Computed example of a mutant assay.
Amino acid sequence: MEDKDLTLNEAVKIINSYFPDDKPLFVVDGNKFKASSSDWRERLKLKEMETGYLKMERIIVTKDVTMEDIAKRIQYFTDRANEIHVLISKDKAQAKREYIKLCEEQNSEYNELTLAQNKQIVNSLGALRAYRGYFGHLHFIKNTYDNLSWNLGEFSQGQSWFNVFGKDIED
């Protein structure tokens, strides 16, 4: 990477270029750098997740997990799958790489839910049983370019099951 000295205005312009449809994230007022709105942190975090720089926190198997936590995590998987699906038309190879990362992420969490050491807590907490059920409704087929849309769609299918049946699982 080439070293380059940027002015404050140039640096802010580069950052704001990632928010083309929104108002700018930051502004320069005189010689001061400041946020353009009070929601800048939330907007930046959403952009980081959207671009794959930030993954939503994984669910840790504890008695404190709520159905709301599970719903948010499932929404993350669905949103990320939808973003990757859009990428297929622009860069199929990159979309496949991103799908593989997402699939590995969900495999890791499903593995945690099925470990013998976690069996008692997962079986005793409705939210974790629902989360395990969500993963049980993901049916991926051979990982090829032709199957990429199908496999990404499985995240929405699993979320549909969760929204209809999973949210009603009680402790």
Rank of each mutant, 00 (worst) to 15 (best):
F162N: 06
D171W: 03
D39S: 15
L6A: 01
M1P: 06
S156H: 07
D29M: 10
E112Y: 02
R58A: 14
E68P: 01
D29Y: 12
Y134F: 09
L8K: 07
R132H: 08
Y18N: 08
D29I: 11
E112N: 09
Y18E: 11
I70M: 09
A81N: 08
I88F: 03
N16F: 08
P24M: 13
Y18C: 03
Q94A: 12
T144R: 02
N16V: 08
D171P: 02
S160N: 13
G153N: 13
K72W: 05
V86W: 06
E68N: 11
I169R: 03
V164A: 14
E112V: 02
L113Q: 03
A116G: 09
S156M: 11
E68T: 11
D79C: 02
E42D: 13
S108A: 14
T114H: 13
N111Y: 14
S156F: 11
E109M: 05
C103T: 05
Y145T: 05
L148F: 03
A81K: 06
R129F: 03
A71V: 05
L25P: 02
N143Y: 05
T51D: 15
V28H: 10
I70P: 06
F162T: 01
M67L: 07
G158I: 09
D64Q: 11
E50G: 10
A130C: 10
D64F: 08
K72T: 10
E68S: 12
G153T: 01
G133P: 11
K90V: 10
F155T: 03
E50L: 10
E10V: 09
R41Y: 15
K72G: 13
D21Y: 12
E105I: 01
N16E: 05
H85V: 00
L113N: 03
K34P: 01
S17Y: 09
G30N: 15
S37G: 11
P24R: 13
D22S: 14
E170K: 03
D22L: 07
K119F: 12
V27E: 15
D91Q: 05
A95L: 00
E2S: 13
I14W: 04
T114G: 02
K32H: 12
L25W: 10
I121W: 07
V164L: 12
I84Y: 04
L148G: 01
P20V: 08
D21A: 12
G126C: 00
E83D: 15
R43W: 01
D168L: 03
V61H: 07
R97P: 02
Q106F: 10
N31Q: 14
S124Y: 01
A81I: 12
S17M: 01
K47N: 08
L46Y: 08
